[in-house]
Simulated assay, not measured.
Amino acid sequence: MKGPSRKLRKQMTDAERLLWSHLRGKQLLGVQFNRQKSLGPYVVDFYAASPLLVIELDGSQHLQDENVKSDAARDSFLLEQGLMVLRFDDRQVLLETAAVLEEIFRMCQQRVTRANPPCPPFAKGGT
């Protein structure tokens, strides 16, 4: 799957390029994101391991019936792997970037905290 991933990284859409500029380099909560990551039989747009999060950006082709069905099958597979899938329309990313980033931030914060709960305080007189 490295071949298709490399090709997709070189041919990013404007929306993918814009979102990547905000996600790369652990800019969001220190979370490491990968772009065009192979997961099972699929290549996802963005993947973050620590919050178990996948972000998919959908262009207009995703509105066609056959693509709606394949997206549903992909989402089902990813959910079975314990991953949360966030889907955004390309136009949302381009026109409402701050709102998209807020939602990604909120989901990362929620899922990283759940995966790594804070340590309980020391018990009084404990060892």
Rank of each mutant, 00 (worst) to 15 (best):
G3H: 11
P4A: 10
S5T: 05
K7A: 06
L8P: 00
R9V: 08
R9F: 06
Q11W: 00
Q11I: 01
Q11N: 07
E16Y: 03
E16A: 00
R17H: 05
S21I: 09
L28D: 09
V31F: 14
Q32C: 05
F33C: 03
N34M: 02
R35D: 02
Q36R: 03
K37D: 03
S38W: 00
L39V: 13
Y42N: 01
V43G: 05
A48H: 04
S50C: 12
P51W: 04
P51L: 11
I55V: 15
E56T: 08
G59Y: 05
S60I: 06
Q61E: 14
H62T: 01
Q64K: 15
Q64Y: 10
S70K: 14
S70F: 10
D71P: 07
A73Q: 13
D75T: 07
D75I: 01
E80S: 12
E80G: 13
Q81V: 08
Q81H: 11
L83K: 06
V85T: 14
L86A: 09
V93N: 00
L95S: 08
E96D: 13
E103V: 03
I104Q: 07
M107N: 09
Q109Y: 15
Q109K: 14
Q109L: 13
R111K: 15
T113L: 15
R114K: 14
A115Y: 11
P117G: 10
C119V: 13
P120L: 02
P121Y: 06
P121M: 03
